[in-house]
Amino acid sequence: MLRLFAKTFKTGIVTERIKTPDSAELETLGIEIKRHIDKHFSGSLAIREVDAGSCNGCELEIHAMNNPLYDAERYGIHFVASPRHADVLLVTGPVSRHMQTALLRTYEATPSPKWVVAVGDCAVCGGEFGGSYASCGAVANVIPVDMTIPGCPPTPETLLKALLGLMKGKGK
C-alpha cells in the first residue's frame, strides 16, 4: 500500500489547462446552437457515447478525454450509461445499417432538449467507408446532427475544445 501512495504522491497532479476555443474556432466547429446550449445546460453536459459503426479509433480518443491529463469531468463533462440520462449523444462511425434502428431508438430515448454531435470523419461525411449496402454513411443521414467534429480520429484536445464550446463559462 505504501508503494501505491508513494507513486501517487510522486506523480502529483498532471492535469493540463485547456483553453476554451475562441469565436473563430467556434465558428469552424459549426456551433450555431451555442446560445441554446448555454441556456439549457449551463455547467454540465451529460454525454451518451454511441458507436454506430466506428473502427474503434474514435472511441480510443474519446476515452483519452477522461485520462488524468485532460480530465474532462472537471468541466462538468461526464459520460452516462443510458441515453435517458443524456443531454448529448456523441455518435461515431459511419452508421452501419445493422446499427441504424438501434441509433434511431437511442435518439428517441434521449429526452429533449438534446443535441447530437457527430465525431470523426466517418460520422461527419462517411469517411473511408462511405455509404454502401452495409453502411448509411454520415450520421446526419440517420438522425439530425447539431455539431460535427472531424478528424480520423479527432484528438482528445480537439474533442474537449469542441465540447467546451458547447458550454458556457467553463474552462476559462
Partner: peptide
Amino acid sequence: LAYVHKGIEKL
C-alpha cells in the same frame, strides 16, 4: 455480433 459490419471486403 456483426452490428458494425461495414462491408470492408466489398469496399
